[in-house]
Nucleic acid binder design. Sequence first.
DNA 1: CGCTCAATTGAGCAACTTCAAAATTAGTGG
DNA 2: CCACTAATTTTGAAGTTGCTCAATTGAGCG
Lengths: 233, 233
Amino acid sequence: MAAHEESRCENCIIRQLNSLKALKKEELKAISDSKETRTIKKGEPLFKEGEKLNGVFCVRNGVSKLSKISDNGKDQIVKIASKGEVMGQRSVIAEEATNLSAVALNDMEVCFIPKTNITARIEDNPAFTQAILKYMAQELKLADDVIVNMAQKTVNQRLAEVLLYLDKTFGQDDEGYLALILSRSDIADVVGTATELCIRTLAKFKKEQLLETKGKRIKLLDKKGLTQIKEGF
Amino acid sequence: MAAHEESRCENCIIRQLNSLKALKKEELKAISDSKETRTIKKGEPLFKEGEKLNGVFCVRNGVSKLSKISDNGKDQIVKIASKGEVMGQRSVIAEEATNLSAVALNDMEVCFIPKTNITARIEDNPAFTQAILKYMAQELKLADDVIVNMAQKTVNQRLAEVLLYLDKTFGQDDEGYLALILSRSDIADVVGTATELCIRTLAKFKKEQLLETKGKRIKLLDKKGLTQIKEGF
DNA sequence: CGCTCAATTGAGCAACTTCAAAATTAGTGG
DNA sequence: CCACTAATTTTGAAGTTGCTCAATTGAGCG
């Protein structure tokens, strides 16, 4: 294989997006030699809650949901990971089984990096450790925000927020519909409500001219209106 | 002052409880020289959401709530910090204003450590950085759990969970009542509900012989019963 | 002892869940 | 490309759960 091809971490653009960019060339080379590229089809799991991960997953293409099942048996999507994000680092760092399940929302391409490659770098490359630390500090803040939203906001508000998030994070297709297409039940699992209520609320938004639908695809028409709803009328 | 007294970080037992234990003697000495001990009375704030913190607070005594106001204007308690916990490190690490407010739940004694003492140690002491990293990884997992609970569990379940948490974390007084006494409205702010519903649910638990109250104090009578409720009947 | 704030109770309304059934849509094999 | 099955989406309707406002009671404190 040619040394400049993308399958080598040193040349992978994805790396620029996450903490791996703090690594030196030699370190990346080591990772590149031990990593493994995997293809995951839509709907297939990358890992399941409670599993011990012996490495992390770096998303090269596609989108994955990270979810957890509550005592009540319902799934809650905690995060949506896409290109450039690393999944599983929390559990590798904490040295414990993962608390989340990851399932592909569309066809994915990911790099699996064995954990020794991560832990060794944490031991000997302070810049890398600091990069992860900052990243986790950000995540922790976001998590606090989600907690407050879940506890205090209505389904109306949370759905508006999720739609705006999907729009901002994944953009639109050429027809103006949200580029990331989720099933109603996945949307409901992000919002933290029953599928039926999610559907009914979408229908209400549609009637209020805030959005338009075509099959499972959604087009936002009035982002200001949605922002107002998100913030509470 | 005598060198062995507790006001010197090197001799402070609290330190054993948190990431500061990864620091070397000289480093602790530097912190000790720049730190400042503060007394905060019940109900007084340590800092407010949106403030820039120029240091972290190490709790020596007493308990503090960490909360955030939602767009709807209601307060949500995200965490309760007590002896040995460090507050504000997330925002110091992320180099941004704090996302939470801290208010003393009873009289407190805290050490304020200027942030340069933390950031410099993160720069030059990998063991310290790694200790914080692991701590944050744990916090992140707990945050995920809270998100799922808030999104999927009923007030019944969440209240049962909070009561068991208070019991496990702060223990009981000599009469068997929860040692940490919170106002009904604080409990409601942890559970994420209206004070009235919190009160009514407590009354229901009382009727079911799960607990007993005396003024604002609460005694758990049937922890197994509460555990069942927490996990959903 | 009176004042103030927290706790409690009542009642009505709004939000959310659940179960069940009907209407679509997507996927599969011929 | 069509037909058929499986899966999702949508709608209805009833029943809970949770929220809010207003009024009452109670406890702590100067």
